[in-house]
């Protein structure tokens, strides 16, 4: 149990996907302009990360390993993630239309989010058990959502600030990410 909590906290805070590992930067800078979009995106990514982790763990353990074709993992994982995103999209559309409309275009774009492929590859290289993989993926997803929400809150205010013309938009967002990253370094001594 302590092991699971350690993995969860280390993925969420110490090795944060965005600020420390640079994964999922496209949605981080693309979607973090409005708070409501950031929350939807974070929830969608966390959901897909969780499902993809369970699916790829089963495939890795019961198909790739027995047949000794682990070198095929990149091709298999990306196909699994692409089809999963498609299925999740259809399922959400059938069951909860409000959520589907809220997520909009961000849902299909999760396929090419490096955070999702990243988490499956991390689980494979670390050889985590199913429970450890789930803790890892939830930690990663929640850390991702947390930083996305913090960033969008800051950027909403930043739009109103009077920054130099050449710094407007992306450069000042990158500097904000640096400051957030510095504060997250403080979590390093936690475990």
């Amino acid at each position: 149990m302590t092991n699971l909590i350690t993995i969860f906290l280390s993925m969420a805070l110490i090795n944060n996907f965005i600020l420390v590992r640079f994964l999922g930067l496209c949605p981080f800078f693309g979607v973090s302009k409005k708070l409501s979009n950031a929350l939807s995106m974070g929830v969608a990514v966390t959901l897909v990360m969780f499902i993809a982790t369970v699916a790829t763990w089963i495939i890795n353990r019961y198909i790739l390993m027995p047949f000794e074709v682990e070198y095929m993992d990149i091709v298999i994982y990306i196909l699994v993630i692409a089809s999963l995103v498609q299925i999740v999209e259809m399922a959400i559309k059938r069951t909860n239309l409000t959520l589907y409309n809220a997520l909009g275009i961000y849902l299909p774009l999760i396929t090419t989010n490096c955070a999702v492929l990243g988490i499956t590859l991390i689980n494979a290289t670390e050889a985590y058990s199913l429970l450890e993989s789930i803790a890892c993926s939830l930690g990663g997803g929640i850390g991702f959502t947390l930083v996305l929400i913090m960033m969008s809150g800051i950027r909403e205010k930043l739009e109103l600030a009077d920054s130099p013309r050449s710094m407007k938009g992306l450069p000042v967002a990158l500097l904000t990410a640096m400051l957030l990253g510095l504060t997250f370094l403080g979590f390093g001594g936690m475990i």
């Binding site: 600020l19 500097l175 370094l185």
Partner: peptide, 8 residues
């Protein structure tokens, strides 16, 4: 060398 330096 640390991650924030890349953003900076």
């Amino acid at each position: 060398i640390l991650p924030p330096g890349a953003f900076l």
